[in-house]
Computed example of a mutant assay.
Amino acid sequence: MFRSSGGEPMAAPATTARALPDRLLEVATRLFAKQGFERTSVAQIVETAGVTKGALYHYFDSKDDLLHEIYARVLRMQRHRLEEIATGAGGPAERLHAAASDVVVTSIANLDDTTIFQRSMHQLNPEKQREFRAQRRAYHERFREIVREGQEAGLFRADAPTDLTVHFFFGSVHHLGTWYRPDGPLSAADVGNQFADLLLAGLRPA
């Protein structure tokens, strides 16, 4: 997604191959945020984007596909970044802190996308819901592996269940959209660092 320095969505450059699908996703995100997924029609999306229904259906099979892709592209980006962090330099504590901070910062940078999807995911067809859950489980499992690595090295509490740790942390991340405001006193980096600090503090051995 292309965004201005102020965080506002921007259209992808017309020279890129992804220009039209990105434009459709930006418009769909805006309309879903303003009036809800159910109350937004395909006709409204194509009219606002200035394209035909045929152009939309060339890239997306349905409105469900638009909703799924709005968050799927964010999740793909986050999984790629997590993999780079997990296989990068530093010990488990350093990499877990970096991974925890990164998912907060990237979630805030794409807050409309993540909030819309969390609010409307139940309206996807069952197959799309299963696909999304499998993708998110894979992301959480990679995060969990860093926690396990730290436990095995004696750096984290051995009595902290990794599943509970991951659910606790990501439950907080998924609620960012209910309270975070870009014009508030904390930047995305501030929140990311504090979330990561709290996670590491909870895992620190007695």
Score class of each variant (00 low, 15 high):
Tyr57His: 15
Gly91Val: 07
His58Ile: 04
Phe60Val: 13
Gly90Val: 09
Val42Leu: 15
Arg73Val: 07
Leu66Thr: 14
Lys34Cys: 02
Gly88Tyr: 09
Val74Lys: 07
Asp64Phe: 11
Val46Arg: 00
Asp102Pro: 00
His58Val: 05
Ala98Lys: 03
His58Cys: 01
Leu96Ala: 00
Val105Pro: 01
Thr87Asp: 08
His97Arg: 04
Gly88Ala: 10
Gly90Ala: 06
Arg95Gln: 03
Gln35Ala: 05
Ala49Lys: 02
Arg76His: 08
Ala33Gly: 09
Val51Met: 14
Thr48Ile: 05
Phe37Glu: 00
Gly90Glu: 10
Gly90Trp: 10
Thr106Leu: 12
Ala93Cys: 01
Ala33Ile: 02
Asp64Ala: 13
Leu56Pro: 08
Phe37Ala: 04
His80Trp: 03
Tyr71Arg: 13
Ala72Thr: 13
Thr87Cys: 06
Ala99Lys: 00
His68Trp: 11
Val46Ser: 07
Arg79Phe: 05
Ile85Arg: 06
Arg81Met: 04
Val105Asn: 04
Pro92Met: 02
Pro92Ser: 05
Arg73Pro: 01
Ser41Thr: 15
His58Asn: 14
Gly90Met: 01
Leu82Pro: 00
Phe37Lys: 11
Gly54Met: 15
Ala72Cys: 03
Tyr71Thr: 03
Gly91Pro: 00
Gln35Phe: 11
Arg95His: 00
Arg81Asn: 02
His58Thr: 13
Ile45Ala: 13
Glu47Asp: 12
Leu96Lys: 00
Ala49His: 04
Ser62Thr: 15
Thr87Leu: 15
Leu75Gln: 10
Ala93Thr: 12
Ala72Pro: 06
Ala55Asp: 08
Glu94Gln: 12
Glu84Asp: 09
Arg73Phe: 02
Asp61Phe: 15
Thr87Ala: 14
Ala100Asn: 01
Glu83Ile: 03
Arg73Asp: 11
Glu69Thr: 13
Val74Asn: 05
Ala93His: 03
Asp65Met: 11
Ile85Lys: 07
Ala89Gly: 09
Arg39Gly: 09
Ile70Thr: 07
Gln44Leu: 11
Glu83Met: 12
His58Ser: 09
Val104Asp: 01
Val46Cys: 14
Arg79Ile: 02
Leu67Ser: 09
Val51Glu: 09
His80Leu: 13
Ala98Gly: 00
Tyr59Thr: 13
Leu75Tyr: 10
Ala100Glu: 01
Tyr59Pro: 04
Ala99Val: 04
Val46Asp: 01
His97Tyr: 04
Gly91Met: 04
Val51Ile: 13
Leu96Cys: 02
Val104Gln: 07
Gly36Pro: 07
Gly90Gln: 07
Gly54His: 14
Tyr71Lys: 06
Asp102Arg: 02
Ala86Cys: 06
Ala72Asn: 07
Val103Ile: 14
Phe37Thr: 05
Asp64Gly: 07
Val105Ile: 13
Phe37Arg: 10
Gly90Cys: 05
Gln44Asp: 12
His97Val: 01
Val74Met: 10
Leu82Gln: 09
Thr87Phe: 08
Thr106Ile: 11
Gln35Thr: 11
